[in-house]
Write a protein that binds this DNA or RNA. Structure first.
Lengths: 244, 244
DNA sequence: AATTTAATGTGTTATAAGTACATATTACGT
DNA sequence: ACGTAATATGTACTTATAACACATTAAATT
């Protein structure tokens, strides 16, 4: 891989090899979580002077020997310890000035994880969950990336059973509705919401009830196994590379 | 930009600078056209031995001093002579083995152009329009990229007034419906189609009729000016860079 | 033990959107 | 003048969305 790529036009060859490899490529993960009726995102304090005091998404350069999904899974694994996560590519961001130290094109992924039932190794990593709706500014173009990923999540939410990755295995319909409301940013009618969900036929009633709620407990449900796909990408080939 | 990026983890620094810049980044354009009731895509014969006899999408490496949209517009301009085109990013493709000569991550864009009313400088470029539905195999992973872009186009088509970029300025409802059918791959009911389009309120009746049709001519319509956005990206900043 | 509280669970009606389907009309070609 | 092939248009049926209220249950309070 040290010789020039013999790509397409002759024109390319005029320009030296190094010029073309002076672009770095990174992956940035918008890691969504859900807790306390609130959509969260996992952020780290930026270590760049230019962005002193600002937070940024979790990202890293892509290594020459790993593909994009592998890089994303590696970041998730390194930062959170998790390797069983939902992950989906959203968009590439490549403005010239998006990174102060040089040319870095980044591919954004969003990821959904259940905060409560996975103990993350957060503290030692300087990682923290931030409420999405209170975030005003981030390092780099990460606010734009976050917004784009949130929009994508909002689009997906009613068509695909993806949000269950944010919930524990068993949940009540109220919890599910609150999650939808947190993602969409507006309130839903309870009866219409339940009807819609029941038409989709995603859930099974497991004949258990909520406990420890200070009111009448609701029924608990599980996502049906056939809809449980933890990743938008082919995970069996990918996570092995990451987690071994 | 020749010194290392001071990015995130200490771990990165263990790996030499050159390793990280040994990934090239390209842009590939799926250029859709429409003619003869058929969705077409613009392809070029691959100049790589590995893909002898196969066609590939139009693409090129991204230059360190241009952003992704600029690179896409440059490719379109260089290859077709057009700079007033609809262009939208779809997805990044980054498998390790997708390019036989080395590691190249590519960002796929799709583009919509009106074949008939723009004279393209095709012949001297070895470019040809191919009917999308007859394409079985392409060089690299370009078949996958084409399929992904087509799916994206199909998704967009009913929600956004994008397909008008494939048609001449004035068109009949029949032409429009045939275009939708070509993109979606199935037939539509004429009355329902017209109702749906009229509800969207995208068109103005310009009080002209088709000419040179061997049957009763239909009315001609134009896309209303407020829906005429030739690009999914901010073009006023972008095309200037390309076309000046 | 009785009462209050706060949530669960459920159904109907009205409106809008989607689907299936048929007939009269018009310009061209012969 | 006539046949042809496409345009133009509307209605009934079905499905989805939206708005809306009341009885029930278990926990917490008195």
């Amino acid at each position: 891989m040290s010789k020039a790529l013999n790509l397409k036009t002759a024109e390319i060859e005029k320009i030296s090899h190094l010029d073309y490899f002076n672009i770095a490529i990174s992956v940035d993960c918008v890691i969504f979580g859900y807790d306390d009726k609130d959509l969260k995102v996992l952020l780290i304090k930026s270590d760049l002077e230019e962005f002193e005091g600002l937070y940024s998404l979790l990202g890293d350069l892509v290594r020459p020997d790993e593909d994009l999904e592998t890089a994303s899974y590696r970041i998730l694994k390194e930062r959170t310890g998790l390797d069983d996560v939902y992950l989906e590519q959203v968009q590439a961001f490549g403005s010239l000035d998006r990174h102060p130290s040089g040319r870095v094109i980044t591919i954004a992924y969003y990821s959904l994880i259940d905060i409560r039932n996975h103990k993350l190794k957060l503290e030692n990593n300087e990682l923290h969950w931030h409420s999405v709706k209170t975030i005003k500014k981030l390092a780099f173009d990460h606010k734009m990336i976050l917004d784009t990923c949130l929009m994508r999540l909002q689009q997906q939410v009613m068509e695909n059973p993806v949000v269950f990755n944010l919930l524990p295995e068993k949940f009540s319909l109220r919890e599910l509705q609150e999650l939808y409301e947190a993602i969409l940013g507006y309130e839903l009618d309870r009866r219409n919401f339940r009807k819609k969900i029941s038409i989709k036929d995603w859930l099974t009633d497991i004949n258990e009830m909520e406990t420890d709620v200070p009111h009448r407990p609701g029924k608990l449900y599980k996502l049906k196994a056939e809809h449980r796909k933890r990743s938008g990408v082919r995970r069996n080939t990918v996570t092995r590379v990451v987690s071994v």
